[in-house]
């Protein structure tokens, strides 16, 4: 089975994020970029399938800060091929529509059975990649996937619906899956192995020009109002309990 894993870079959430000068994006100059954690899960699940049988894995990513590191890491972990798509501004905010268009235009030339990608990314303002990409390619898709096995021309998919309930369906191949979790935590690629991959393997670069708008116009980005410690609930045990009960109900988590 030919599996393509679409990976991407993302501002590291451990960083303190700041807003850029015109207030429409984060300031990208000083943040560190890491690979999207759900994409890591997608890669891991692909690798598990490869461990189990005959999957051939291609990782593909758009040119973004430090993306080579992510691709080499994937190679070190056992991916067979790495592709970097260029032809866009690697420094800016690549919105979901453009990302999907670029990937789709490359995928249309490449042969694949399954595309795996992370179920979401923290800057998916314009929706999640899997569905958009599938629609562009005219293939089936599913999000929040927690497991799958392939059966000839179809893939049997397990999607988590929340609270541990799982929906099982069968999708005709090819398909795009948004992976929520792999069966195990993503494996570790030792730095020694990554360095080895850097020396012995190459990342194939493909220039693509494509775009597709999907999102609206970002008017402004700002950090939410800063909170300064807890709001203390005063009063007797019963009064406090009532306030807490209200808080719980306001989150819609309990009815009574």
């Amino acid at each position: 089975m030919k599996i393509v894993v679409a990976m991407r870079q993302l501002a590291d959430l451990v960083e303190e994020l700041e807003v850029n000068a015109d207030g429409t994006d984060i300031d990208r100059d000083f943040v560190k970029f890491v690979s999207n954690e759900w994409d890591e899960a997608a890669l891991e699940e692909a690798l598990c399938h490869k461990d189990d049988g005959d999957a051939e894995i291609t990782v593909v990513a758009l040119d973004e800060p430090d993306v080579d590191q992510t691709l080499y890491t994937a190679l070190a972990k056992g991916a067979d091929r790495a592709v970097k798509l260029t032809g866009h501004d690697p420094e800016g905010w690549i919105r979901t529509g453009d990302r999907a268009a670029i990937l789709a235009s490359w995928l249309e030339r490449d042969d694949f059975d399954l595309v795996l990608t992370g179920v979401q990314a923290a800057d998916d303002l314009d929706g999640q990649l899997a569905g958009v990409l599938a629609e562009r390619l005219g293939v089936r898709h599913a999000a929040v996937v927690v497991g799958f096995h392939d059966a000839d021309s179809a893939v049997q998919v397990e999607q988590e619906l929340g609270g541990g309930t799982v929906a099982v369906s069968s999708l005709e191949l090819p398909a795009v899956l948004g992976i929520q979790a792999a069966r195990q935590t993503p494996r570790y690629a030792s730095i020694t192995r990554i360095r080895q991959a850097q020396q012995t393997q190459t990342i194939q670069e493909v220039e693509i020009s494509a775009g597709g708008s999907l999102g609206g116009t970002v008017r402004k980005i700002s950090p939410p109002k800063k909170r300064g410690g807890a709001e203390m609930l005063e009063g007797s045990a019963s009064e406090v309990a009532e306030r807490i009960a209200e808080l719980i109900r306001s989150k819609g988590l309990a009815r009574s």
Binding site: T96, G97, A100, V119, Q120, D126, G127, Q128, L129, A130, G131, V132, A134, E135, R136, H141, A142, A143, V144, Q159, G178, G212, S213, L214, G215, G216
Partner: peptide, 15 residues
């Protein structure tokens, strides 16, 4: 998460 992106793309809408 399943349908938002694909339907928006299908109908050419913004999401």
């Amino acid at each position: 998460l399943d349908l938002g992106g694909s339907l928006a793309t299908r109908f050419g809408g913004q999401l």
